[in-house]
Amino acid sequence: MASILFFVVLTIAVAVLFKFYHARSWTRPVAVNYHFTRRCNKTCGFCFHTATTSHIEPLDHAKKGLLLLKQAGMRKINFAGGEPFLYSKFLGDMIDFCKEDLRLESVSIVTNGSLVKESFLKKHGFNIDILAVSCDSFDEATNIEIGRGSGNQVPQLYKIGSWCRQYGIKFKINTVVCRLNYQEDMNQQIDALRPFRWKCFQVLIVAGENDSNGTLRDGRKFLITDQEYRNFCERHGQQKSLIAESNRLMAKSYLILDEYLRFLDRDGRQPSDSILQIGVQKALESVYWDERAFRDRGGIYDWSRRVESCSEVKKGLDW
């Protein structure tokens, strides 16, 4: 009897362990944010991915990492920083590789907009699905106080919006709602710019990045209450493009690959080893990614550029 009971318990334990291992080993990094540089030409006071290093991987290493991610199930890549357009040649090469070689569903970029040029979009725009520009205020004095500021943030935003429409790229705006802008009414400008997505983040504090006097940025003075954040979102509730992301949804729902091709952990643990050294699955297992929060915040959406725009742009350009 004892031997039978032991066998039953052992069978159940093996089944549970197999199920757990199977689930872990088949984690899919569906959408990855590759912060390939930490360098930036702006000094936003609440930045949570600061220039603690100046490292950037060689292009062949970056491409190998992107290939590994595609093989592991990645469907969308988002290039961010720092400011990715500081390395426009590197960025352009990766964009083309992801679309033309890896055939990813979506390639997107997040930029502060200051270095975006029409010539870049003319050359690489056919391979860009989404261009997201960070704009935290339509008052230039506020932008300057935040740290974005040379005074031309808003005119440049309108230029980029126009270029995106011209080259068939989905235009997106990212806004960090903070102490300096949470009372602002942006409805008129958003109506005019017509982004396909307007993502509004509640300002976030990340340990070791922007949480003290000892870090490069101290975002604590920009903090707002949950209610103040909700008030901002309610004021702009008429905007169909509005995507609200509170701290709860944002903090651990993004898969972030850093400049060393390591997954970052927002649960207090160390980054993973490089995916070039240990592979994507082992790297994922060593960090915490809240996949449920990823889905709750609408992490999977219509992220490919419009087909009709692609054909129109392609016909109109000499590639």
Rank of each mutant, 00 (worst) to 15 (best):
Val8Asn: 06
Thr11Arg: 13
Thr11His: 07
Val14Asp: 05
His22Thr: 09
His22Asn: 15
Ser25Glu: 12
Trp26Phe: 10
Thr27Tyr: 06
Ala31Asn: 07
Asn33Lys: 08
Tyr34Lys: 10
Asn41Met: 00
Thr43Gln: 13
Phe46Ser: 07
Thr50Gln: 10
Ala51Arg: 08
Ser54Met: 07
Ile56Gln: 12
His61Trp: 10
Lys64Ser: 15
Lys64Gly: 02
Lys64Trp: 03
Gly65Tyr: 03
Gly65Ser: 04
Leu68Met: 12
Lys70Asp: 06
Gln71Arg: 12
Gln71Trp: 03
Ala72Phe: 03
Ala72Thr: 03
Gly73Ser: 00
Met74Ser: 12
Arg75Asp: 07
Arg75Val: 08
Ile77Pro: 05
Ala80Met: 12
Gly82Lys: 00
Glu83Cys: 04
Phe85Arg: 00
Phe85Tyr: 06
Tyr87Asp: 03
Ser88Ala: 13
Gly92Ile: 07
Leu102Glu: 02
Glu105Val: 10
Ser106Trp: 01
Ser108Asp: 01
Ile109Cys: 03
Asn112Val: 04
Leu115Asp: 07
Phe120Gly: 03
Lys122Asn: 11
Lys123Gln: 12
Gly125Asp: 00
Leu131Tyr: 02
Ser134Gly: 08
Ser134Cys: 09
Asp136Thr: 03
Asp139Pro: 08
Ala141Asp: 14
Gly151Phe: 08
Gly151Ser: 11
Gly151Pro: 02
Val154Leu: 12
Leu157His: 02
Leu157Cys: 03
Lys159Val: 00
Trp163Val: 03
Cys164Trp: 01
Cys164His: 04
Tyr167Asn: 00
Gly168Ser: 09
Ile169Lys: 00
Phe171His: 00
Lys172Met: 02
Asn174Lys: 08
Asp185Trp: 06
Arg194Ser: 09
Phe196Tyr: 04
Cys200Pro: 03
Leu204Cys: 04
Asp226Tyr: 02
Gln227Thr: 09
Arg230Val: 05
Asn231Gly: 09
Phe232Asp: 09
Gly237Phe: 05
Ala244Ile: 10
Ala244Gln: 11
Ala244Asn: 11
Asn247Met: 15
Met250Arg: 13
Met250Ala: 11
Ser253Ala: 14
Phe263Pro: 01
Asp265Leu: 15
Asp267His: 13
Gly268Met: 10
Arg269Lys: 14
Pro271Gly: 07
Pro271Ser: 10
Asp273Gly: 09
Leu276Trp: 08
Gln277Val: 11
Ile278Leu: 07
Val287Cys: 04
Val287Gln: 05
Tyr288Ile: 10
Trp289Tyr: 12
Ala293Ser: 15
Phe294Gly: 05
Tyr301His: 14
Trp303Ile: 13
Trp303Glu: 15
Cys310Tyr: 09
Glu312Ala: 14
